[in-house]
Structure formats: C-alpha cells, structure tokens
Simulated scan of single mutants.
Amino acid sequence: MKPADLTKLSMKKAAELMHVDRAVVAELVKQGCPRNANGTINLYKLTAWLLVRTKGEAVG
C-alpha cells in the first residue's frame, strides 16, 4: 500500500491495518476521531488523535 493510500481508508480497511475489529473503529468514530469529508479515515491523523487522547500511554 502506498503512503498516500493511508489517507483515505474505509473503516473496514482501517480496522484491518490496525488489527482490530471494525467495531473498534466504529467506536472511535463515535468518540470523534477525525475523518475526511467523505467519511474515510486518514490513518496518520487517527494515530495522532489517539496519541493525544492517551498521552502516549498504553491503553488496556
């Protein structure tokens, strides 16, 4: 996958790349994770958003 492709992922593809269930990504969307105008997910922005939310600490 090209780096540019990581900026426009479906929720299903984002879940696959993150090795989580699609429900996890759906929950992140509910919590306000950043999405593109067309509803796709930018993996770089999602990662930054998660790091800010967790202050870089492990979750779980």
Rank of each mutant, 00 (worst) to 15 (best):
S10D: 05
M18Y: 09
L28I: 05
G56Q: 07
M11W: 08
E57H: 11
V20A: 04
K12Y: 11
T47D: 05
R53H: 10
G60C: 10
L6I: 04
R53I: 08
V59W: 14
G39W: 03
V59I: 15
R22N: 09
C33Y: 01
P3V: 14
L28S: 03
L17H: 01
R22E: 11
V20S: 02
V24D: 04
V25N: 00
K30N: 15
A15N: 03
A48Y: 08
K30W: 06
V52L: 15
L9Y: 00
Q31K: 15
S10E: 04
C33H: 03
E57Y: 12
A15G: 02
V20C: 07
P34A: 06
A15M: 04
K13M: 11
K2A: 12
D21Y: 07
H19E: 14
G56C: 08
W49K: 03
V29M: 05
T7L: 03
T7R: 12
L9D: 02
E16K: 10
N42L: 02
A14V: 01
L28H: 06
L43W: 02
E16W: 03
V29I: 09
K55V: 08
Y44L: 12
L6D: 02
A58D: 11
N42I: 03
V25S: 00
L50Q: 06
D21N: 15
T40W: 01
R35L: 04
Y44K: 11
T47I: 10
T47W: 07
T7P: 00
K12W: 05
S10L: 07
H19S: 13
A15Q: 04
N38H: 08
L46C: 03
A15S: 05
V24R: 06
W49H: 06
L9P: 01
K12T: 15
S10T: 15
V25A: 00
E16G: 04
A37I: 12
V25D: 00
M1Q: 12
M18P: 00
K8Q: 11
K2D: 13
K30H: 14
S10A: 08
M11F: 09
E27M: 10
L51R: 13
E57P: 00
N36L: 03
K30Y: 11
A26H: 13
V52W: 10
A23E: 14
A14W: 01
R53P: 01
V20W: 03
E16T: 10
K55L: 13
V52M: 14
R22Q: 11
L43H: 02
A15E: 03
M1N: 08
H19W: 06
N36Q: 12
D5M: 09
P34S: 05
T47Y: 11
I41V: 14
R53M: 12
T7G: 12
L46S: 02
L6C: 06
